[in-house]
Design a protein around this nucleic acid. Structure first.
Lengths: 143, 143
DNA sequence: GCTACGCCCTCTAGCGACTAGAGCTTCAAG
DNA sequence: CTTGAAGCTCTAGTCGCTAGAGGGCGTAGC
């Protein structure tokens, strides 16, 4: 909060947050970002509040939160006196999903590695095609 | 190949492969599955070849291969005399993506776990909102 | 043969989260 | 005052399906 930032063009905001220009406009269109002020010629002009909010959004997206979850997180962030139990619930649900995804990807990784253990010869002898053609040859039954 | 399967309705094929009926029609529309024969009344009738091909597709999709990659794998599977180097290349590329995704998800998981280490009190003290609002408080700089 | 019911048909539109392009206007540096 | 980058709106496309409307087909029982 040392420097007072005002009147950023959309491109400046994009550079400062790492969010692409069309994506910023898209966020505005779905109500995730508020409509900014406009220059006399009609161009968007952003301030420190927009910058902070967009960084919050960007970070949450990087963390894999869905837009609707971010909407809820934003609403909570706007109310510092409220409880954060809901934020916990959202985060826990998200964590569970992430852990599940990791487990499935690890199984998949092992399977892909096993598939690569072939001598690169003809298709007739290739484990990759073979495994894909016949599920029984898989390492796991998980899928 | 013990039993000769012919004249499956689309629903039978769906049950035998675990691929939903509209998805089978979708695969046909994008040329991933060939157009099947039709009954007198115009309903699709599938044979053993379709069944095998759809199982191949299903399995590859489960393994996270994209449709275009599956197209290439299918073309290779159809040519058992050809080399399988390309199948290796596709699989290796896919494996690299999967490993990358795992690494990022693990970092994310740790971050989410750290975020949950808050006493569930007011938003003003909540690490979740705080971390999302300020990237600097993250565990990693990876994102 | 007739009816009932489940399955099948085509077609269009929608999802999430953007991304790309056309065709035009505005801004700021030189 | 000109130029060129960056902004504007709008539409349409991406991927891999999924949902729904409004109808036609197939078969089992009577």
């Amino acid at each position: 909060m040392a420097v007072h930032i005002e009147d950023l063009a959309i491109g400046d905001l994009a550079r400062r947050t790492g969010v692409k220009v069309p994506t910023i406009r898209y966020y505005e269109s779905i109500g995730l970002m508020p409509e900014p002020a406009r220059s006399e010629g009609g161009q968007r002009r952003y301030g420190a509040g927009h910058l902070a909010r967009l960084r919050f959004v960007r970070h949450a997206r990087d963390l894999g939160f869905e837009i609707d979850a971010i909407r809820e997180l934003l609403a909570m962030a706007a109310d510092p006196q409220g409880g954060c139990g809901e934020a916990h619930a959202i985060t826990r649900a998200h964590l569970a999903e992430v852990e599940d995804k990791i487990a499935r990807l690890v199984a998949l990784r092992d399977e892909l590695r096993a598939m690569l253990a072939c001598d690169n010869g003809r298709v007739a002898d290739c484990r990759i095609i073979e495994v894909l053609a016949d599920h029984e040859k898989c390492l796991h039954d998980s899928h």
